[in-house]
Each structure stands twice: as structure tokens, then as C-alpha cells.
Design a protein around this nucleic acid. Structure first.
Length: 228
DNA sequence: ACTACGATCTACT
DNA sequence: GTAGATCGTAGTG
């Protein structure tokens, strides 16, 4: 059963849910990152509905944030989307393999976005499994690259507005029951010490990864440091 | 034009 | 636990 919704059988019916509005995203990025926990992300990519409860996010700010694509150099061709209207979808490609889904925050002209890091699968689980080569449920959406693949998200979505393209986010019905944990962000060489990663406490499907800096080499690995 | 590097994941040991 | 994949972006020449 779903640990977030309490439903015996995970399911989701978009027609009965309330989409988040522009005002929700036109706020401080870290606040939006926190409030997105428990909300439902849905994709209609490929004509198939897939959806999951957001259980882990990270906030990326503007020029004051050394870990952000919008740090120091101002607007570029790549990070230009981070300055667009709140509720815009920002997707980029990294490590030659992985798409990352971000939702743009703050008023237009101010950089800020929330990286969606993990979902609890809710609808279209068979579709997710076919896209993810039949991997077990806990590996479907536990990581930003994984959930993008499971929901069929790619660069086609970059720059679209929530509700106007293939993606939509629906309001959280259980705000009062959420217990939110705050930690440093994962996988950054700079800015990892800032408390900008949020996840639902004790949820078994949150991603694993290092919070410290990448080791001197290139392809580092390591644990989150709190496995036991 | 060329080079360095990364908001990661998988596979194999 | 550790190494490799793989390519867009941005900085430099």
C-alpha cells in the first residue's frame, strides 16, 4: 500500500485532483521545494498516464547559490529557462545518460528551480516498468534520472508550462501529516552543505547518493553517510 | 575548434 | 565497493 496516501492499491485520477496554480510556484524556491512533498506529479508522455507522489526534492537558487546552473555567470542559453515564468518545466541532460526534471519558481526574471529527486509510484506502474526494463518497484522512481525515464520525460518537455504540455502537478491532500527532513544536496562539488534538500521522513523510496563533494577524481561514489 | 566536467545510474567484483 | 558510460554546455584558443 502507499505509505503516503494510505491507499491499499496505488491509483490516481487526474480529473478529481486540483492542479497547483502559478501562485504556488511564484514563491521562494526553498519553500516551494518543501511544499511540493506529498504532491502528485503526472505525465501523459506517449499517451500513457504515469504519476507518483513527490517524496524528495532539492532547491536550486540564483546567483547566490554556487551549486546552481544560475550561479555567477548570469543568464546563458542553458539556464535561461530558470528565469522564466513560475510553473515552467526545466529539463536538462547530464552524464551522457540522464534527464533531470526541475520546476521553475520565483517570479519571472528571477532564477530558481526545484529538482524532483524521487517519487512513490502511484499510477501507470506497468508503463514505468516497461520503460525501466522491468526493474523492481523501489528502483522505478528513486532518483532523478530514474523518475525521468519512468515518466517518459526528456528534452521535449523543456520550456513547457505545467498543464499545457505533458506534465502536471496536483495539490497535496495530506499536508498536515507530512514530516519533512532537511539535509544537504546530493552530488554537488560546491554548495552541498546548504540545507536545500527535502524529503519525507523515513520514506523507504528516497534516493541514495553522496552529500559531500565529489572525490578528487572524476567518477566518485559513496554513501549518504547514515545508512545504519 | 577543442577540452573539461558534471544536480547520475548501472554493472560487475 | 568500484569503475565506466556518454554528450551537452561553457570556457578557452
Amino acid at each position: 500500500m502507499s505509505l503516503v496516501t494510505g491507499a491499499d492499491t496505488p491509483q490516481f485520477e487526474p480529473s478529481t485532483a486540483a492542479p497547483l496554480d502559478t501562485a504556488f510556484f511564484a514563491r521562494e524556491t526553498s519553500q516551494v521545494a518543501r511544499d511540493l512533498l506529498g504532491c502528485v506529479l503526472a505525465s501523459t508522455s506517449g499517451g500513457r498516464l504515469t504519476a507518483g507522489v513527490i517524496i524528495e526534492t532539492e532547491a536550486y537558487l540564483g546567483s547566490d547559490d554556487p551549486g546552481s546552473h544560475a550561479a555567477t555567470r548570469g543568464m546563458t542559453k542553458r539556464n535561461e529557462v530558470m528565469y522564466r515564468a513560475p510553473g515552467t518545466v526545466y529539463v536538462y541532460f547530464t552524464y551522457g545518460n540522464h534527464h533531470m526534471l526541475n520546476l521553475v519558481c520565483e517570479p519571472a526574471g528571477v532564477a530558481g528551480a526545484v529538482l524532483i529527486r524521487a517519487l512513490e509510484p502511484l499510477a501507470g506502474i506497468e508503463v514505468m516498468q516497461s520503460r525501466r526494463a522491468g526493474r523492481p518497484l523501489r528502483e522505478l522512481c528513486s532518483g532523478p534520472g530514474r523518475l525521468a525515464q519512468a515518466l517518459g520525460i526528456d528534452l521535449v518537455d523543456n520550456g513547457s508550462l505545467l498543464g499545457e504540455g505533458r506534465l502536471q502537478v496536483y495539490d497535496c491532500l495530506h499536508h498536515e501529516e507530512r514530516k519533512v527532513a532537511v539535509t544537504g544536496r546530493i552530488g554537488l562539488s560546491q554548495g552541498h552543505e546548504l540545507p536545500l534538500r527535502f524529503h519525507l521522513e523515513a520514506h523507504p523510496l528516497v534516493s541514495r547518493g553522496r552529500t559531500g563533494p565529489r572525490p578528487a577524481g572524476r567518477h566518485g561514489s559513496g554513501g549518504e553517510g547514515s545508512k545504519a
